[in-house]
Protein backbone atom coordinates (compact mmCIF):
# COMPACT_ATOMS: atom_id res chain seq x y z
CA UNK A 1 0.00 0.00 0.00
CA UNK A 2 1.42 3.30 -1.02
CA UNK A 3 1.99 6.15 1.42
CA UNK A 4 -0.75 8.23 -0.20
CA UNK A 5 -3.38 5.57 0.30
CA UNK A 6 -2.19 4.99 3.83
CA UNK A 7 -2.59 8.64 4.69
CA UNK A 8 -6.04 8.65 3.10
CA UNK A 9 -7.08 5.64 5.21
CA UNK A 10 -5.62 7.27 8.28
CA UNK A 11 -7.54 10.49 7.61
CA UNK A 12 -10.75 8.56 7.07
CA UNK A 13 -10.33 6.70 10.35
CA UNK A 14 -9.51 9.88 12.25
CA UNK A 15 -12.29 11.99 10.83
CA UNK A 16 -15.12 9.47 10.60
CA UNK A 17 -14.35 7.48 13.75
CA UNK A 18 -17.00 4.86 14.50
CA UNK A 19 -19.11 5.76 11.49
CA UNK A 20 -16.77 3.52 9.50
CA UNK A 21 -18.43 0.13 9.06
CA UNK A 22 -15.66 -1.20 6.86
CA UNK A 23 -12.47 0.18 5.36
CA UNK A 24 -10.55 -1.89 2.86
CA UNK A 25 -7.70 -1.29 0.47
CA UNK A 26 -7.24 -3.63 -2.44
CA UNK A 27 -5.75 -3.24 -5.90
CA UNK A 28 -4.71 0.30 -5.03
CA UNK A 29 -8.25 1.43 -4.27
CA UNK A 30 -9.87 2.34 -1.00
CA UNK A 31 -13.39 1.15 -0.25
CA UNK A 32 -15.34 2.64 2.60
CA UNK A 33 -18.54 1.08 3.86
CA UNK A 34 -21.03 2.90 6.04
CA UNK A 35 -24.43 2.06 7.45
CA UNK A 36 -27.44 3.62 5.74
CA UNK A 37 -28.14 5.73 8.81
CA UNK A 38 -24.72 7.38 8.65
CA UNK A 39 -24.63 7.69 4.87
CA UNK A 40 -25.72 11.28 4.41
CA UNK A 41 -23.69 12.57 7.31
CA UNK A 42 -20.58 10.71 6.14
CA UNK A 43 -21.03 12.02 2.62
CA UNK A 44 -21.17 15.58 3.90
CA UNK A 45 -18.00 15.11 5.92
CA UNK A 46 -16.23 13.48 2.98
CA UNK A 47 -17.03 16.49 0.86
CA UNK A 48 -16.36 19.27 3.33
CA UNK A 49 -13.65 18.13 5.73
CA UNK A 50 -10.32 19.83 4.89
CA UNK A 51 -8.43 16.53 5.22
CA UNK A 52 -10.66 14.71 2.75
CA UNK A 53 -12.20 17.20 0.29
CA UNK A 54 -14.01 14.87 -2.09
CA UNK A 55 -15.50 17.57 -4.29
CA UNK A 56 -16.69 15.32 -7.06
CA UNK A 57 -19.06 12.41 -7.26
CA UNK A 58 -17.94 10.70 -10.44
CA UNK A 59 -20.29 7.78 -10.37
CA UNK A 60 -23.13 6.33 -8.38
CA UNK A 61 -24.54 2.95 -9.19
CA UNK A 62 -26.78 0.31 -7.75
CA UNK A 63 -25.59 -3.25 -7.27
CA UNK A 64 -27.73 -6.32 -6.71
CA UNK A 65 -25.72 -8.84 -4.71
CA UNK A 66 -28.37 -11.57 -4.59
CA UNK A 67 -26.63 -13.90 -7.08
CA UNK A 68 -23.10 -13.32 -5.79
CA UNK A 69 -20.91 -16.42 -5.94
CA UNK A 70 -23.88 -18.63 -6.89
CA UNK A 71 -25.76 -18.03 -3.68
CA UNK A 72 -22.85 -17.45 -1.35
CA UNK A 73 -24.12 -14.00 -0.39
CA UNK A 74 -25.74 -13.53 2.98
CA UNK A 75 -25.78 -9.75 3.51
CA UNK A 76 -28.37 -7.24 2.32
CA UNK A 77 -29.28 -7.46 -1.33
CA UNK A 78 -29.01 -3.93 -2.68
CA UNK A 79 -26.19 -1.46 -2.37
CA UNK A 80 -25.42 1.95 -3.79
CA UNK A 81 -21.78 2.45 -4.69
CA UNK A 82 -20.36 5.94 -5.15
CA UNK A 83 -17.01 6.78 -6.67
CA UNK A 84 -15.68 10.00 -5.27
CA UNK A 85 -12.79 12.06 -6.54
CA UNK A 86 -10.88 14.79 -4.84
CA UNK A 87 -9.47 17.19 -7.40
CA UNK A 88 -7.49 19.14 -4.83
CA UNK A 89 -5.99 16.09 -3.06
CA UNK A 90 -5.89 13.80 -6.10
CA UNK A 91 -7.62 10.96 -4.25
CA UNK A 92 -10.27 8.48 -5.14
CA UNK A 93 -12.63 6.68 -2.82
CA UNK A 94 -15.33 4.11 -3.22
CA UNK A 95 -18.22 4.53 -0.82
CA UNK A 96 -20.63 1.65 -0.43
CA UNK A 97 -23.86 1.67 1.50
CA UNK A 98 -26.29 -1.23 1.73
CA UNK A 99 -30.01 -0.63 1.75
CA UNK A 100 -31.36 -2.19 4.95
CA UNK A 101 -34.65 -3.56 3.57
CA UNK A 102 -34.36 -6.01 0.65
CA UNK A 103 -38.05 -5.80 -0.22
CA UNK A 104 -38.25 -2.02 -0.19
CA UNK A 105 -34.73 -0.59 -0.55
CA UNK A 106 -34.58 3.03 0.52
CA UNK A 107 -31.49 5.19 0.90
CA UNK A 108 -31.05 8.89 1.51
CA UNK A 109 -30.28 10.96 -1.56
CA UNK A 110 -27.01 12.87 -1.91
CA UNK A 111 -28.27 15.24 -4.62
CA UNK A 112 -28.01 18.11 -2.20
CA UNK A 113 -24.30 17.46 -1.71
CA UNK A 114 -23.22 16.53 -5.20
CA UNK A 115 -25.61 17.67 -7.91
CA UNK A 116 -24.21 15.10 -10.32
CA UNK A 117 -26.00 12.44 -8.23
CA UNK A 118 -29.31 13.58 -9.70
CA UNK A 119 -29.28 11.41 -12.81
CA UNK A 120 -27.20 8.66 -11.26
CA UNK A 121 -29.81 8.15 -8.58
CA UNK A 122 -32.56 8.20 -11.16
CA UNK A 123 -30.64 5.52 -13.02
CA UNK A 124 -30.17 3.38 -9.91
CA UNK A 125 -33.88 3.75 -9.19
CA UNK A 126 -34.81 2.82 -12.73
CA UNK A 127 -32.53 -0.18 -13.04
CA UNK A 128 -32.56 -1.53 -9.47
CA UNK A 129 -35.60 -0.02 -7.82
CA UNK A 130 -33.61 1.64 -5.06
CA UNK A 131 -35.56 4.62 -3.76
CA UNK A 132 -33.63 7.72 -2.84
CA UNK A 133 -35.31 9.71 -0.14
CA UNK A 134 -35.12 13.44 -0.73
CA UNK A 135 -34.46 13.24 -4.45
CA UNK A 136 -36.29 16.12 -6.15
CA UNK A 137 -37.37 14.27 -9.29
CA UNK A 138 -37.08 10.49 -9.03
CA UNK A 139 -38.35 9.43 -12.46
CA UNK A 140 -37.25 6.57 -14.66
CA UNK A 141 -34.46 7.62 -16.96
CA UNK A 142 -33.19 4.90 -19.28
CA UNK A 143 -36.11 2.52 -19.72
CA UNK A 144 -39.19 3.14 -21.83
CA UNK A 145 -42.10 5.34 -20.80
CA UNK A 146 -44.46 3.10 -18.85
CA UNK A 147 -41.90 0.33 -18.29
CA UNK A 148 -42.70 -2.14 -15.51
CA UNK A 149 -40.00 -3.71 -13.36
CA UNK A 150 -36.36 -3.01 -12.66
CA UNK A 151 -34.34 -4.58 -15.45
CA UNK A 152 -30.88 -4.84 -13.89
CA UNK A 153 -32.00 -6.90 -10.93
CA UNK A 154 -30.54 -10.37 -11.09
CA UNK A 155 -33.99 -12.00 -11.24
CA UNK A 156 -35.01 -9.99 -14.30
CA UNK A 157 -34.42 -12.11 -17.43
CA UNK A 158 -32.08 -10.76 -20.09
CA UNK A 159 -34.84 -11.01 -22.73
CA UNK A 160 -37.32 -9.07 -20.61
CA UNK A 161 -41.03 -9.83 -20.33
CA UNK A 162 -42.67 -7.84 -23.11
CA UNK A 163 -41.84 -6.98 -26.68
CA UNK A 164 -43.23 -4.34 -28.98
CA UNK A 165 -44.59 -4.78 -32.49
CA UNK A 166 -46.79 -2.96 -34.94
CA UNK A 167 -50.25 -4.45 -35.12
CA UNK A 168 -51.74 -3.99 -38.61
CA UNK A 169 -55.33 -4.61 -37.44
CA UNK A 170 -55.31 -2.10 -34.63
CA UNK A 171 -52.97 0.12 -36.68
CA UNK A 172 -50.79 0.93 -33.73
CA UNK A 173 -47.86 -0.38 -31.74
CA UNK A 174 -48.79 -3.04 -29.20
CA UNK A 175 -46.97 -4.82 -26.39
CA UNK A 176 -47.06 -8.60 -26.15
CA UNK A 177 -45.24 -11.27 -24.11
CA UNK A 178 -41.76 -11.97 -25.49
CA UNK A 179 -41.49 -14.64 -28.13
CA UNK A 180 -37.72 -15.11 -27.89
CA UNK A 181 -35.83 -17.21 -25.42
CA UNK A 182 -32.45 -16.16 -24.08
CA UNK A 183 -29.70 -18.33 -25.50
CA UNK A 184 -26.67 -18.84 -23.36
CA UNK A 185 -23.73 -20.33 -25.20
CA UNK A 186 -21.28 -20.13 -22.36
CA UNK A 187 -22.64 -20.97 -18.94
CA UNK A 188 -21.54 -19.00 -15.96
CA UNK A 189 -18.93 -20.97 -14.02
CA UNK A 190 -17.10 -20.29 -10.81
CA UNK A 191 -14.14 -22.61 -10.41
CA UNK A 192 -12.28 -23.49 -7.25
CA UNK A 193 -9.66 -21.00 -6.16
CA UNK A 194 -6.53 -22.36 -7.80
CA UNK A 195 -8.17 -23.38 -11.07
CA UNK A 196 -6.51 -21.83 -14.12
CA UNK A 197 -4.77 -19.43 -11.82
CA UNK A 198 -3.55 -16.52 -13.87
CA UNK A 199 -0.63 -16.03 -11.53
CA UNK A 200 0.66 -19.54 -12.17
CA UNK A 201 0.50 -19.36 -15.96
Amino acid sequence: MSARLESLCQNLQNVLGDRVAGLKTSLGEVTLEVAAGHYLETARILRDHPDLRFEQLMDLTGVDYSAWGDGAWSGPRFAAVCHLTSVSKNWRLRLRVFAPDDGFPVLPSVVGLWNSANWYEREAFDLYGILFEGHPDLRRILSDYGFVGHPFRKDFPISGYVEMRYDPDQRRVVYQPVTIEPRENTPRIIREDSYGDVGHG
Binding site: M58, D59, V81, H83, I190
Partner: peptide, 11 residues
Protein backbone atom coordinates in the same frame (compact mmCIF):
# COMPACT_ATOMS: atom_id res chain seq x y z
CA UNK B 1 -14.65 4.78 -15.97
CA UNK B 2 -15.29 1.09 -15.76
CA UNK B 3 -16.40 -0.30 -12.42
CA UNK B 4 -16.14 -4.05 -12.59
CA UNK B 5 -17.13 -6.50 -9.88
CA UNK B 6 -16.03 -10.09 -10.20
CA UNK B 7 -17.11 -12.96 -8.00
CA UNK B 8 -14.50 -15.27 -9.48
CA UNK B 9 -16.58 -16.42 -12.42
CA UNK B 10 -15.86 -16.36 -16.12
CA UNK B 11 -18.25 -13.44 -16.54
Amino acid sequence: GVYAISDGGNK
